[in-house]
Design a protein around this nucleic acid. Structure first.
Lengths: 198, 198
DNA sequence: ACAATAAGATACATGACTGTAGCTAACGAG
DNA sequence: CTCGTTAGCTACAGTCATGTATCTTATTGT
């Protein structure tokens, strides 16, 4: 942007609006996202928002779809346990980011619109290669270290489910000890790698 | 109450207010509970509410604490799998009741007050004998059919976590097939009863 | 250099919710 | 029966969000 610019346009403005929408959704929580608050946070008049969107949730959806992609696990070849713990660590960090909390604000809203949630899953999640532990589990299954028949929807969801619940109960990050406990006591047994049965 | 009564007092009035608060919280969702809406639903003036509470969340907490206790699992002695599935069924039914959705509305609120959530756990949950699958798992551990060392916080949370996540993803009841899958593919393996290892 | 576009700064009526206050009349206890 | 309590009714000013409608002016593209 040139030096003397006083007025944002195009991408620069959109980025500011998107950032404001995600932060605002994260702070305000389910069902409390308003055009007014987004506009204030982005320091732009409401009319600029209404020019493009008629509903704050549509705006938020565009904002989430536009965000930088989430960091992905990089599974190796010989440390399934460590890679699973690392994937859960990534998930925790993401969940506490504005984007993660904004997603929560959509999913946890009992007045949520089914189409809206479907759009979230398509545009934001499907664009990535699955969720955190999923990536790792599929990787090791492809390398023959996990029976692919074990990777059912339940098992692929295990880590994320336990982390989510713990975060909701505590309202805080579960901590690495707990993540290791999840891997050792839930995920590994479920794929037939129970440490206690060795 | 006598026939000609035109004015509710004491318990009758309180019950109406409590019911209104729980239903309203369930419908409105996290952070959207208002004195006004509770008062309208209970058909009482706001001043009656303000006489006793200064915050709608305090009111809701009293309402939840006052509710009829949740149905408990009745584990037998020889059907661990069936009892676990039944416990998850009970949990699903509770989760979709107004009380369950009201609890969700508290826990999923990012602006939630830590003291408030703590009070919820103490006054509402602790009063019961633990959560759904917990009751069953502890019962069978006492009868020597499960190694008590296996009943870690992670394992005791498994069923509830998977059900919660599934409900958040789908926005609907998981269905009995899924509940059975949770028991077979997650809980039983975690307590060393993996059907695939027999 | 000019014209089209769109950001920015208002203003407005409407509607929800807040917290407080004052009044009346029904109810319950003594 | 009488009196203290309190439900029920109404009103108020204040705050916040909504959608729409101006008007001005910086910026861009031709």
């Amino acid at each position: 942007m040139a030096e003397g610019q006083t007025r944002r346009r195009g991408k620069a403005l959109l980025d500011a609006i998107y950032a404001a929408a995600v932060e605002e959704a994260a702070d305000a929580g389910p069902g409390r996202l308003t055009m007014d608050a987004i506009a204030k946070r982005a320091a732009t008049p409401r009319s600029t928002l209404y020019r493009r969107w008629s509903d704050p949730n549509d705006l938020l959806l565009d904002a989430l779809a536009d965000l930088h992609p989430v960091e992905q696990p990089h599974p190796g070849a010989d440390d399934l346990r460590g890679d699973l713990v690392a994937a859960l660590r990534l998930m925790c960090d993401w969940a506490f980011s504005p984007a993660g909390r904004a997603v929560m604000a959509i999913v946890a809203n009992p007045r949520r619109d089914a189409d809206h949630v479907a759009a979230l899953y398509e545009r934001v999640f499907a664009a990535r290669g699955g969720t955190f532990t999923q990536t790792v589990l599929r990787h090791y299954a492809e390398h023959g270290q996990i029976d692919p028949a074990r990777l059912t929807p339940v098992v692929l969801d295990l880590g994320e489910a336990l982390v989510t619940k713990r975060m909701m109960d505590l309202g805080a990050d579960p901590g690495d000890d707990y993540l290791e406990a999840i891997v050792d006591q839930a995920i590994l047994p479920a794929i037939g790698h129970d440490p206690a049965n060795r």
